[in-house]
Design a protein around this nucleic acid. Structure first.
Length: 575
DNA sequence: TAGAGAACTTAGAAGCGTCACA
DNA sequence: TGTGACGCTTCTAAGTTCTCTA
């Protein structure tokens, strides 16, 4: 496993066709020329109309502009459950008071005495009005937005005009963390040009800051890919303006990611054998590392970095698992030595699973409390250091990419059936995709309208079945009438009825397949794995082999993002 | 060499536009 | 022609890994 990765790139593969003509730069250099217009700032706050009032303790209060703006942030969210949560309300109130004048602060002491009703109503009215705009008005808005995209949404990087992913500065508002986030409700402040750092090349046209403003800094760092950055006040972290996923820079990076995962394929057996061996090591640290690696490989757990307590919601990954997140069962559901996982992972998505496992875990849990680390001799740095010694470029997350892609490939192979029609082939593809999504624990909230829309679909299926019965009867009748007759008209009728039956059957099958697909997909999100984990070349090759059009599985965004794969993949591609 | 911070990827939710169907 | 469901796009939070610094 120790040979370094072959330094080839899609550029070299497609060189002669002019698709990706440039060579890569020396280590660390991302571009030689970068020009853009700077980020786009959200519009300034406009004060409330006179007839929309905020009330405190039943009395109207005219708020100062900064306090009024923040009050409106809260009012806009009042339909959301967030605003009922104590942590959210407390954080909001504390930050709101900071925006008030001394006088306001002395008056407004209790959030429960605040009445945002008119602000809330105004907001709802605005949303409604926007929805009810005429076609022409909507078109005017659309054109205005397009103008902004045309002006700010692109940059020139080396010889390419590239789309920027997020050229808009995030507007101010109330912070919405996921799950039980201790900072939910805090004020996310308005970003000014004075907060923004611009990155571009020296010889480019430097972007102009908005009138009356200046940039925090203009730098020319071609070892990074961002065009602008600022520090966000809630968590103190950096935010970046970066290129769109369809850019050359991002595409090459994506391709490299899958090449590293493919490389793992060549040495995964050895790595597995090694960690199986390490399970018996005399060194506790080595044993813990082996178990963690087993979880990462078999269960596709994330690495699990340490997190600062109280700064974010309490979520964990593999290395940060605590004793309280697992339960050991001598027997469970007829299986021996079962470990039951139950914890919140990234984005507070619950991970629940039961897996047969070995005795080591019992050992790791000895003399520990629920809140203690399961792997007290291990962290992600140690783990990744070990992994990179086994294969250059190998880190914990590569296992997710590898296992996701290899699973898709295997599933597609298993489900392959050329006799199926397109709808059935697509159901098979989605099922393969679903196996990956389940492995990676990609969940979604079931759509609010799920039950209703399933019922609607079922009703349609039922009615189509009735139609089919009727069509079959009519066909039978027509055949009867045409039997022994040489009347051309009657034969035409039979043909027509045959076609009607066939059409009905096709439509019914399509709907039934759709219902199955939708039901199986209720709580599973396929998009995340498709976008981030599945080597697109597997899907492109599958389409070619199965004679399915690529746009059946990839929308425009995906086709753009994976242009490199579409360009280079033949039907015989193997991950 | 560890810790902090920077840089970049991965993630689900919400918003929005489109299209099928009554 | 209106409406609702659905899929696509946007948004930004939340991860991982890399890199710098003391």
């Amino acid at each position: 496993c120790n040979s370094s990765m072959t330094p080839f790139s899609p550029s070299k593969v497609k060189k002669e066709e002019g698709g990706w003509e440039e060579e890569k730069y020396e280590d660390g250099i991302k571009w030689k020329f970068l020009e853009h217009k700077g980020p786009y700032f959200p519009p300034e706050y406009q004060t409330l109309p006179d007839d929309v009032k905020f009330y405190y303790n039943g009395k109207p209060v005219k708020l100062s502009l900064p306090a009024e703006e923040v009050a409106l942030f809260f009012a806009q969210m009042m339909d959301h459950e967030y605003t009922t949560k104590e942590v959210f309300r407390n954080n909001f109130f504390r930050d709101w008071r900071k925006e008030m004048t001394l006088e306001e602060r002395q008056l407004i002491m209790d959030l429960n005495k605040c009445d945002f009703g008119e602000l809330h109503a105004m907001h709802k009215q605005k949303v409604e009005a926007r929805k009810n705009l005429s076609k022409e008005e909507k078109l005017v808005n659309k054109e205005a937005n397009q103008k902004i995209v045309d002006e700010y949404g692109y940059c020139v990087l080396d010889h390419h005009r590239e789309r920027i992913g997020n050229f808009k500065i995030e507007p101010p508002g109330l912070f919405r963390g996921r799950g039980d986030h201790p900072k939910q409700g805090m004020l996310k402040k308005r970003i000014q040009p004075e907060d923004a750092i611009i990155n571009c090349s020296k010889d480019s046209r430097i972007p102009e800051p908005p009138a009356g403003h200046r940039w925090k800094e203009v730098r020319h760092d071609n070892t990074v890919t961002w065009l602008a950055s600022w520090t966000e006040n809630v968590q103190g972290s950096c935010k970046y303006v970066m290129l769109n996923a369809n850019s050359k820079l991002k595409g090459e990076k994506d391709w490299e990611k899958y090449e590293v995962a493919r490389k793992l394929k060549t040495c995964v057996d050895a790595i597995r054998a090694q960690y199986q061996e390490d399970l018996k090591s005399k060194q506790m640290g080595t044993r813990q590392r082996a178990v963690a690696l087993y979880f990462i490989d078999k269960l596709a757990l994330r690495a699990g970095n340490e997190k600062e307590e109280g700064e974010t919601a309490d979520t964990v990954g593999c290395c940060s698992l605590r004793v309280e997140h697992i339960t050991l069962h001598d027997t469970l559901d007829g299986q021996k030595c079962v470990v039951e996982f139950d914890f919140l992972g990234k984005d507070c998505i619950r991970y629940y699973n039961k897996v047969p496992v070995f005795k080591n875990l019992k050992l790791f849990m000895e003399n520990k409390q629920g809140g203690d680390d399961l792997f007290d001799r291990l962290n992600t740095q140690l783990l990744n250091k070990h992994l990179s010694s086994l294969m250059p470029g190998l880190t914990a997350k590569v296992f997710r990419t590898y296992n996701a892609s290899i699973t898709l490939q295997q599933q597609l192979k298993e489900l392959r059936n050329m006799k199926e029609n397109v709808a059935e082939k697509l159901l098979s593809y989605n099922r393969a995709n679903r196996a990956v999504a389940i492995l990676c624990n990609h969940q979604r909230a079931p759509p609010k309208t799920f039950e209703q829309s399933m019922a609607n679909l079922q009703a349609k299926i039922d009615s189509r079945k009735e139609q089919l019965d009727l069509a079959k009867k009519e066909l039978k009748q027509a055949k009867k009438e045409a039997k022994g007759s040489s009347d051309n008209k009657l034969l035409i009728v039979v043909e027509k009825k045959k076609k009607a039956v066939q059409r009905c059957e096709e439509q019914l099958l399509k709907m039934e397949v759709q219902a199955t697909d939708r039901e199986e997909n209720k709580q599973i999100a396929l998009s995340t794995s498709k976008l981030n984990y599945l080597d697109p070349r597997i899907s492109v090759a599958w389409c070619k082999n199965m004679e399915v059009q690529l746009d059946k599985i990839y929308n425009k965004t995906l086709r753009d993002k994976f242009a490199w794969a579409i360009d280079m993949t033949e039907h015989d591609f193997v991950f």
